[in-house]
Design a protein around this nucleic acid. Structure first.
Lengths: 128, 128
DNA sequence: GGTTGCCTTGACGTGTGCGTCAAGGTTTAG
DNA sequence: CTAAACCTTGACGCACACGTCAAGGCAACC
């Protein structure tokens, strides 16, 4: 299939697919006229990328998963590198949850009391 | 005081202060040679901006608080617009917490079981 | 042969909060 | 007089994941 159909089947855009290719996440055969040609395996790769992005991972984070699928594994997260990413992400999420809880307490307190001196500020806040 | 001293006292940079001014958050008197001149009230404004940013607010979000201080209130969050921002932020934080929890469950499950089909994917994830 | 609908590469735009030069003016110390 | 340490405006850079033209090639249909 060509890039337009892959985009439609994956529910994305041709621009995104070309961008993935520019980032080395996706490869494509070329037909004689220069058109990109994809198969179902590529569709699988794109879906993997999308589902990982949906849980807050960057494209860089998806690299090991894509590599894992390319290496022939039936799921992208059965390789050590992928599981490392999971663990790192989990740690990030946990940290983010803590900060968000602190921010939440801060906001609740500020909304409840008018006195700003009663409420300590949370530490810095940077969640993906 | 001039911009350098204000920056030092607030623990920020002159670049940030000029940026705040370009965004209409900070104003400055000018001395005869064109230098910006600030007072303690401006320092208070900058500190307000910083503490709000620290809890994840954008510069745009800080606008009502700054206006509230400028209007003469002793705390930036005693005006209705500021409290609205608090409420909106609280809602955002709550939504973000839910999504992060779902992501956390997803990651934990993926790390525990090798079978990817057992785990449903969380919905889209976009936390500030 | 003209239109439509695909495809190609290239390059600039988006949002956020500044960082980092660049090129120059001002003030103070020596 | 000069060097250091301030200050000014202007403008480009960054990260991220693409969106959005622009200018053109290719294939099929009327």
């Amino acid at each position: 299939m060509r890039i337009g159909e892959l985009a439609k089947r994956a529910g994305t855009t041709t621009r995104a697919l070309r961008f993935y290719e520019s980032q080395g996440l996706l490869e494509a055969q070329r037909t004689s006229n220069g058109y990109r040609e994809y198969d179902d395996h590529d569709l699988r790769l794109v879906r993997e990328i999308q589902s990982l992005q949906a849980v807050g991972m960057s494209l860089e984070d998806t690299r090991p998963f894509v590599a894992c699928l390319r290496a022939g594994h039936e799921s992208g997260d059965s390789c050590p590198d992928s599981r490392e990413v999971y663990q790192r992400k989990l740690a990030e999420v946990d940290e983010c949850l803590e900060r968000l809880q602190a921010v939440r307490e801060f906001l609740l307190a500020r909304l409840a009391f008018q006195d700003p001196c009663l409420v300590a500020e949370p530490k810095e806040f940077q969640c993906s």
